[in-house]
Nucleic acid binder design. Structure first.
Lengths: 193, 193
DNA sequence: ACCATAACTTGACATCGTGTCAATTTACAC
DNA sequence: GTGTAAATTGACACGATGTCAAGTTATGGT
């Protein structure tokens, strides 16, 4: 069939995704090949390097999970409601992409393309943060002692995957508690009054 | 002389420290050996693995920079003053140990000893956070809607090296701005009224 | 001065993972 | 059937960590 190439490619992406999301540390190219039921060399036929495979896996997951639409949904609201919806959407998303995110963060140290891919991803989140902050400003709810820039930077930092990891894994917080406290803190931090 | 062994060992530690603090990515054992003016094998005579060398370098730096005393100094104050002093001390410390911290964080993914060493370091910081929060509570300044546990976890997360990196490197904040905003946020987050 | 010992050097080698290459097989399309 | 694209097989280069054994240098004790 005409999608034979695409089939194999997708099977590799899904295998990589699955392994990474299982939390397995040090996932090798041969592991992914085995999990996809193809030879190690077949993987290199579709992805030039391990870094590229991880980058494309990230894109694939974002596409399947439809991150853009999920974040865009928060745009329906305004002010504090929008802030809460944005945090809820992103906070719900993190556990679904934690494995692949961690792998991409790790390889980012040695691979410039992966670093750029991660920055790109963060840029999208940053835009969402800035938009939420601007909505607060428009509704007159943003603290007067905070610039839009500072507020966006702080919100973006608060919502980092590392902070989620810190609180959920290292400190044992539940996902619900994480979401509640993060929303709570975002309000303390950004909202006037 | 009797400190010949200790001399070489120290020179290796200092070389590792220097290279890592220069921000060089992917520092190899051979790089460290060359910088220390010894053979690569001499390094293995003193440190069994790269992970162990990084761990011992961290300890060495903490010792030379006297982190314990610097954090302990904040104990002189109480309540909000103590919180500020603690943030100032730790915030000033981060840029001095950023290179080695990053290396330890990176190798932590693959080496269990390094992971334990990092956790140990974080435990010390966590104790400082908890003590600062308890001081707030004793002076009646802790928000009533925050438990001591949650407050400590949040403060510890706020003060992570990753967040410093986020704001200083990725968002281009100055060290002064980082310190001001972090103190400001800690107060918004933890202090009643 | 001489010897014993510990530290260091030298050079070779094992291992592991990534990435490359060439020859071959499979399978589908025309 | 024949040609073409995709996948397999097995070998290899490379770079980094870590090991090993033999030889060298310096130091300290008698």
């Amino acid at each position: 069939m005409s999608s034979a190439e695409s089939d194999t490619r997708t099977r590799i992406l899904q295998a990589a995704w699955r392994l990474l999301e299982e939390g397995a540390a040090g996932v090798r190219m041969s592991d992914i090949a085995k999990a996809a039921g193809v030879s190690r060399q077949a993987v290199y036929l579709h992805f030039p390097t391990r870094a590229n495979l991880l980058i494309d896996t990230t894109r694939y997951v974002d596409e399947v999970k439809n991150i853009d639409d999920r974040l865009a949904a928060s745009r329906a609201a305004a002010g504090i409601d929008r802030l809460d919806a944005f945090i809820q959407a992103w906070g719900d998303y993190i556990p679904e992409i934690y494995g692949i995110s961690k792998a991409l963060l790790a390889i980012q140290e040695t691979d410039v393309d992966a670093a750029e891919a991660w920055r790109d991803r963060m840029r999208a989140l940053m835009h969402g943060c800035a938009a939420a902050v601007r909505s607060l400003e428009e509704t007159g709810q943003l603290r007067p002692d905070l610039s839009v820039g500072d507020a966006s930077d702080l919100l973006w930092t608060l919502l980092s995957v590392r902070n989620w990891e810190h609180l959920r894994q290292d400190r044992g917080w539940s996902q619900e508690h994480y979401l509640d406290r993060t929303k709570w803190l975002a309000q303390r931090m950004l909202v006037a009054g």
